[in-house]
Design a binder for these strands. Structure first.
Lengths: 241, 241
DNA sequence: CTGGGATGGATTGTATACAATAGCTCTGGA
DNA sequence: TCCAGAGCTATTGTATACAATCCATCCCAG
């Protein structure tokens, strides 16, 4: 693995974990000391993080950790929903061979098994997150559009905008089962819509699916404990009281 | 202006003008000779161009100019329409103060004047492009979402996906007046929709508006002469006969 | 004659030295 | 006491030297 990639991964992790606070200036030499690579790959990583949106360039040079308002998080989620909606619609409109839907249906079955349990363990939630991400990636791939896939991947770069961003919040909240059941039904419906070439329906379902995450955000903003389970939550500015 | 920015602008220009052919490997030292800046800013510029999508990284190191299939261009335009549609919908749903619509209406009036002429000169088309871009930027700004604005700016980075990408094609085609009239009507309708807080309508108009560009692409792909007026057309792979 | 491996050149990846600049502090004057 | 300016320091921007790696060519063996 190259030093640049190493620096990128480590820096991203430091930012998302909250070790580097929002607004904090990122001094190159300090990062060099911390990561043990030279300035060149650190700078390269910073440029990429800026593109990802986790870091912003100071007009007079240097970078700072980006802070996100609650509204921006909402917009990021809405944007993700719109892009996934586009992918679902494109897939439905052009039609996909039945065998390409098999892996998606496999995800559905496995998720059924996970959320079928009477009481969900933390491991169950982690398994759900894994399956959920597999489902969303497979869905994106159905559109056969590398350009769109890339744009969606960019949206996922903000972890609180990604499909599983707020799932772990539910692990400590009573409505958990409820919400996962609803999400899973949307998964099932969107596959059906694509199968039947119902483009507009597929698009709307994915948009609504993303709005589940907005509801989670709303719940989590009232619950500091829940927010701790959300990767990157440290970047979200707390509500003004 | 920094060396990095200078390198970025020059390289982007070389790629879009076709001086660097699609698929061509970009050797850093060759670029250094050509641009007169050292490798460091050249490398920084290449990373940014990769994010813009004009250049792709070779798995074993180095970069090459990206080539686009006609289908990818279509997808890029569709994507732009979806994003602008989202911006228009958000603006309509939250409502915008009447005075913020004034600059947009100003654009409408000016465009009316330009396309009102019996016969359009090349200067008229250039003026149209300028006003059209002003209109689209102002519309994007109405959504009050820097996150979305940035995503739309990224879509515009591929010039053939930007709102004025194919306008100049019309300068040498007979349907010109026709198409500009239609586009301008869509401009007018979307402002009206936002004014009336008709979110769904505003969104659909912007999507359809983008599809005008897809039609232009279709026309231009048959006409090498027309393609020469499209910035970045050199990156579009010609149709297989 | 063909295939595989080794060697050399070309090219990218990394580190670091140097230059430029921005921001801060300290001093002097009003 | 407060403001302005100059100088210094800390930090980023740039160039370049060095290391690693990849690719191509050539030679030798089967």
């Amino acid at each position: 693995m190259s030093q640049t990639v190493s620096a990128l991964l480590q820096l991203r992790d430091l930012i998302l974990s909250g070790d580097l606070a929002p607004g904090q200036r990122l001094q190159e030499l300090a990062i060099v000391d911390r990561l043990g690579v030279s300035r060149t790959p650190v700078r390269a990583a910073l440029v990429q993080l800026q593109e990802e949106g986790l870091v912003e360039a100071n007009p007079s040079g240097g970078y700072a950790v980006r802070a996100f308002s609650e509204q921006e998080v909402n917009e990021a989620i809405e944007l993700r929903g719109v892009l996934e909606g586009l992918a679902a619609r494109l897939a439905a409109e052009k039609g996909v061979e039945p065998e390409r839907l098999t892996p998606l249906k496999g995800c559905l079955t496995e998720i059924d098994t996970v959320i079928g349990a009477a009481r969900l363990t933390l491991a169950d939630f982690e398994r759900y997150v894994e399956l959920n991400e597999r489902f969303h990636h497979a869905l994106t791939a159905l559109a056969d559009s590398p350009m769109l896939a890339r744009q969606i991947a960019r949206a996922y770069a903000l972890p609180f905008a990604s499909p599983s961003g707020f799932v772990m919040v539910q692990a400590i909240q009573p409505q958990a089962h409820h919400i996962l059941t609803i999400a899973q039904d949307q998964h099932r419906c969107v596959v059906e819509a694509i199968e039947n070439r119902e483009g507009a329906r597929a698009e709307m379902i994915m948009r609504e699916h993303a709005r589940l995450a907005r509801r989670h955000l709303e719940l989590a903003m009232h619950d500091q404990d829940a927010l701790r389970h959300v990767r990157g939550a440290a970047l979200i500015a707390p509500r003004r009281a």
